[in-house]
Design a protein around this nucleic acid. Structure first.
Lengths: 243, 243
DNA sequence: AACATTCAATAACATAGGTTTTTGCAATAA
DNA sequence: TTATTGCAAAAACCTATGTTATTGAATGTT
C-alpha cells in the first residue's frame, strides 16, 4: 500500500507537476477500510461521490430480475470507481469488495474544480474515461464473439496487463482474487462451465489456477490463443503538461 | 436534416448560451457526405479527429481473426464518433455507414480548446463520454445475461429511446436501417438465429419488422419482456451553465 | 427478358454451454 | 475429533444457439 496509488496511476499517463499532484492527492483524503464481501454502494442509490481505490480489489455488478447477475467492472488499486455516474443522479450498478480494501471518497462537485483549474487534469480525467470505454469495448468483443476458453483467458490477461501498469512482478504469475462465480458472472457463463474451462486451459498447458493464484507458462501463446492485444490498455496519447 | 443536429443533441443535456453554441457549431463545419456501405475509417488508422453525425446512421465494428465480426456502436444523428480515441493514437475500431450519411470532422486538438475555454462544455463532453459508457454497460448486460429474444428486443428499444431524445414520432414504429447480419454481429448471434428470433417476437406479438420498419404494438410489454429501463439513457444530471 | 445478387425465412442437424447433482477438499467452528 | 460451510471438479443430461443448405422475394444489371 504505497502512499498515493492514484498518483502512480495517473502519473503513468502524463508528466505531473506539483500543482497537479497536490490536487490529485487531495482526492485521497481520509481512506476508508472495507472488508471483503462488503457492499460499497447499491444500484439506484443517489450517486454523489466517486471513489479512488487505494488498495484491494472491488467489482461492480447488476442484479437481474431473473436472479442472475452480470459483473461489469473489476477495480484494482489506482482505479477510480463511478466516473461514469458523473452524468447520472443514481448509481447504475452496485459495487462490492472482493478483498479487504481501502477507498477514498471524493464528491462529484470536485470535478468542476478540476475542469476550471487545470486543462491537463481535465484532459487526464477525460482520457481515463476514454480508457474505461476501451476496456468495456474489449469486453463486449469478448462476450460477443469469443469461446468460453478465450473469454476466460482474455479477462485474465486484461487484469494482468492492468496490474503491470503500476506494478512489476514475475510476469507469468499473479494473484487474481476472483472466485469462479464472479468470473462466471463477468463472462456470462455458468460457474460449472468456468470450472470446466479452467481444467481445459490446464490440460492445454495454457494457464494454471490454484486458489486464486494464476500461472501462465507462455504468455505469448496464451495471448495468441485469446486474441489479446494489449494496445487498448497500454498505448496512450501523451498529454501536454502545461497548466 | 436540421441545421445543427449536434446543438439539438447537446442542448438536451444542458442549457446552452450563445458562446457555447458558437463553439459547438464550429464543430460542424464542412459536412462531408458518405454513401451507404462506405467505410469511414479503419481499425489501426492514426486517430486524429472525431466526427459528429449530421444525418444518417453509422456503426463501428471490429473484424476478428477467425473471420467473425463484432459490432460495437451504432451512431445516429447528433452522436459523436470516436470520443474514446481521445486517449489513443490509433483507432480502436473501424466505422462504416449504414445509410447515406453526413459527418463533420473536427480535430482532437479542439478538445484542448474546449477544456481551456468552458467549464460547461468540458462537463458536457465528459458527461457525453459517461453516457456512452452507460450504453456500453447496458450492452454488456445484454450480451452476458439475456436470451436472444431479449437481446434483440433490448437493442431495438435502446435505439428507439435514443432517437426519441431529439425526435418525436408515432412512438410505436420507426425505421431501423440495420440488416440482420449487422444485428447478429451486434448481439453476438448468427444471422440465422436473428431471423428465427424475429419470427419468434412476431409470433408473440411483441414486435414486427418489415424491411427495416419496426412496429411495437405495446411498448410497455416489450420493455418488461426485455428488462429494459430507460433511465440509463434519459436520466441525467443537470449541468450548470455558468461559463 | 434473362441473369445475378442480396436479404430473409425455413429446415435438419451439430455443438457449446447450461442445469442438476454428487463428490472431494479445505478451512473454520464446536 | 467431528460437524459445518464454501469452493471447486466431475458426470449425465438438456437446450439454446450455431452451421449448412435450400428456397423465395426483391432489386439491380445486361
Amino acid at each position: 500500500m504505497s502512499k498515493s496509488c492514484i498518483l502512480k496511476h495517473f502519473g503513468s499517463y502524463a508528466e505531473l507537476e506539483p500543482c497537479h499532484e497536490d490536487l490529485l492527492c487531495s482526492l485521497e483524503k481520509s481512506p476508508r477500510k472495507i472488508n471483503a464481501e462488503t457492499v460499497l454502494c447499491h444500484e439506484g442509490d443517489i450517486a454523489e461521490a466517486f471513489y479512488t481505490v487505494l488498495s484491494g480489489w472491488l467489482f461492480s455488478y447488476r442484479n437481474m430480475e431473473d436472479g442472475t447477475r452480470q459483473v461489469l467492472d473489476i477495480f484494482v488499486p489506482g482505479d477510480v470507481i463511478g466516473l461514469r455516474e458523473f452524468a447520472f443522479t443514481h448509481r447504475l450498478t452496485s459495487v462490492a469488495a472482493l478483498t479487504e480494501a481501502e477507498v477514498c471518497e471524493f464528491p462529484k462537485s470536485r470535478m468542476a474544480e478540476i475542469f476550471s483549474n487545470s486543462v491537463l487534469l481535465s484532459s487526464l480525467f477525460f482520457a481515463i474515461g476514454a480508457r474505461e470505454q476501451a476496456v468495456l469495448l474489449e469486453r463486449l468483443v469478448n462476450l460477443g464473439r469469443r469461446s468460453a476458453t478465450q473469454k476466460l483467458a482474455h479477462l485474465t490477461l486484461e487484469l494482468l496487463s492492468r496490474l503491470e501498469r503500476t506494478n512489476t512482478f514475475s510476469q507469468n504469475e499473479f494473484r487474481m482474487p476472483l472466485p469462479q462465480h464472479v468470473l462466471a458472472d463477468a463472462l456470462g457463463l455458468s460457474t460449472v462451465h468456468v470450472s470446466r474451462t479452467f481444467t481445459e486451459l490446464k490440460e492445454e498447458g495454457l494457464m494454471f489456477r490454484d486458489n486464486n493464484h494464476i500461472q501462465i507458462p507462455n504468455i505469448k501463446r496464451l495471448k495468441d490463443f485469446a486474441g489479446f492485444s494489449p494496445y487498448y490498455l497500454n498505448e496512450s496519447v501523451p498529454l501536454d503538461s502545461r497548466n
